[in-house]
Design a protein around this nucleic acid. Sequence first.
DNA 1: CTGAAAGCGCTTACAG
DNA 2: CTGAAAGCGCTTACAG
Lengths: 344, 344
Amino acid sequence: MKRLTMADIAREAGVSKGAVSYALNGLPGVSDKTRRRILDIAERHGFTPNSAARALTGSPAGAIGLVLCRPARTLGVEPFFMELISGIEGELSARSIALSLQVVKDHEAEIAVYHRWWAERRVDGVLVVDVRTADARLDAVRRLRLPAVVIAGPADFDGLPSVWSDDGAAITEAVEYLYALGHRRIARVGGLPDLLHTAVRTAAFQEVCARLGFTRAETVLSDYTGEEGDRVTRRLLISADRPTAIIYDNDVMAVAGLAVAQEMGVSVPGELSLVAWGGSLLCGMVHPPLTALTRDVAGYGANAARRLLTLLEEGTVDSYQDTTAHLVPRGSTGPVPSRPARRR
Amino acid sequence: MKRLTMADIAREAGVSKGAVSYALNGLPGVSDKTRRRILDIAERHGFTPNSAARALTGSPAGAIGLVLCRPARTLGVEPFFMELISGIEGELSARSIALSLQVVKDHEAEIAVYHRWWAERRVDGVLVVDVRTADARLDAVRRLRLPAVVIAGPADFDGLPSVWSDDGAAITEAVEYLYALGHRRIARVGGLPDLLHTAVRTAAFQEVCARLGFTRAETVLSDYTGEEGDRVTRRLLISADRPTAIIYDNDVMAVAGLAVAQEMGVSVPGELSLVAWGGSLLCGMVHPPLTALTRDVAGYGANAARRLLTLLEEGTVDSYQDTTAHLVPRGSTGPVPSRPARRR
DNA sequence: CTGAAAGCGCTTACAG
DNA sequence: CTGAAAGCGCTTACAG
C-alpha cells in the first residue's frame, strides 16, 4: 500500500495543501463545500497525516509517557499497574493519543528517559507514579517544563498538579472497623518505605490506633512482594502476643499472608482477621475471600489521564482528589475470638 | 531549558549540520578529530536529535507497537501481559526504542490502530499477541507491509515470522505426570476458545489422554477469569464422577479453582490435584502452592522483541521456538486417593 | 475564501 | 574530508 500525503489529497481535490490542512484540522480558511469534499476524499483513502511531520511543526506529538520504576518480576503480579494503564488507555485511545511505556530500574534512569522524551519531543506530557517523600523526578520534570500530572498526594508538588486519593481516611475506616469487631492487637504490613503514600498510611494508622487505644499496633514495612508478605506474616504469627488482625498495603501480600495462616493452621477469620489494600479481583479469588480497601484503579488512571490532557490543552489544571478507597467486607474478617489467641 | 538542534551543535563546533549528522550517526564523512569534538559538544549539552525530524526523513520512528485486545478488568489480574511487557521493555529500552501500547476492545479496532500507526509512521513494527485460529489482523499487517512478529505457534503465518513455545509438549508432560500419580479421571479448564494456543492445547490434551486410556478426560473452555475458574470448577466438583485432577490454562483460574475446593471441603491434594498454567509468582503465593507449567514469560517477550528488531534491521528473520514450559511440582498435586472420591 | 511560500530539524545525495 | 542544498510532510503566516 502506498502511503498518501496531503499533497495527494490536495491534487485529487484540486486544491492546495494548505486547504487540505485547514479542512482536516477544522480551521477556518476553506468553504464548507470544499471542506466536505476534502474530508470525503481523505476518508475514502483512510488518510491520516504523518505524525512526524505534524510534530515537526510544533504540533503536539500525540503521545503521553508513563515510566514504571519497579523490578520486572514484581510488575507482573501487581495488578495495580495494569489496571491503571487500562484506565489511562481508555481516555487516550478515544482521542487517538498514544501511550509510551518504559520500564526502568531506578530514578536516575527514569530522569534520563524524561530528558530524552523532552529533547526528542516524543511525548507531550507524562504521568508520574510511585512518588517518594523525596523525589528527584519531580524537580526534573519541572526543570524541563515537561507537562506532568503526579499520581500521588496529598501534598503540594510545587506547581505540579496531582490526582490523589485519601489513603489516610481509608485506613482509618479499616482500623475503626476492626476495633468495632473487638480487635485490640493489630499489625500492618506496609509497602515500600520511601513511597509517599506509605508514609501517609503509616501516619494515619498510628494516629487512629493511638486514639482508639490499641494494646498493640505495629507497622512493619515491606516491599509489596508475595515473598515478603509471607515472611513478615510468619514473623507476626509466631510472636508472643500475636495480633488478631493484620492490614496489608496491597493485595499480593495479603494473599500471601492468608496462605501462611492456612499453612500454620491459624483459622481466618476465626483466629485472625485480614484486610487487603487494593480492589483487584485477586481478593475475591481466594478462600476465604479477602476483606479489602477497594477503589476503582482504572478510574483513577482515567482521571489522571484526563487531567493531563486538560493541562496540555489549557496550559493549567487543578489537582483533583479522587474517591477514597472504601472497605468491602468479605470473609477474611470477623469478631475477635473470645478465648485468648493460642500461643505457640 | 532550551531545546538544542543540530544547527546549534554545528555552530558551536564550527562545522555544517551535515557533519554533525554524520558524526552522531557514526557515518563516514568527518575526520576522527572533528567527530570527537562534535560528540563531546553533543554529550555536554545532552543533545538528542528530534525524533520527528528523523522520522520525517525516512529514518525509523524508533518505536514499536503492542496492541492488547482484552477487557480492561481482566488485564489487571492476568500477570502474563505485564510480564511479557517487562521482557519486551528490557530489550527495547537498552536501545532507547519506545514501546507504544494500546488497549482495544476488538480486532476491528486493533486493525484500525495498525492502519493509523502505519499511516502516521508512528511505529517501525508491531508484536501481535493472542492470535486466533482465524485472525484478520495477520492479513491486515501483511497488506500494510507493517513489519510484525507473531507471538504464537506452531503455525505457518504465511510470511510473518513468529516466536512460539510448544504448549502441546508441555501439557502432555503434565498429563503423563498425573497419570503416573494414578489419576484416571481428569479435566482441563481451557482458555478462550478462539485462541490458537487453546486449540493446540486441546488437541494435545485429547491425544495424550486417549493414548494413556483415561476413564474421563474432558476439556471445558472458559475465559481466563477468576469468576469462570470458580464456576467451572464448582460444576466439575459436583458432577457425579468427579475428576481427581484438574489442569487450568492459566494461573488466575487455578487460584480460583483452589478456593472453590477449599470452600467445598475438598482437600487439595488429598482428594484433588490441581495444575496451573503460567509461572507467575501467584502460584507460589497460595496454600498449598500450585504445581504449574511454568515458563519464563519475560524472556519470551524479550525474544520476540529481539526478533522484531532483527527483522527491522535485516529485513527478514526466522521464526523461533522458545523453550517449552516445564512442570514445577508443588503442593497441589499428589497421588490419587485409594478410596473412591466422596460423592455429593 | 484560496494559493504560494517559508519553515520545523533532520538526512543524504551532490559538488567542491 | 567538508559544505551547501534539496527534500521529508506537514502548518501557518502572508498575499491575493
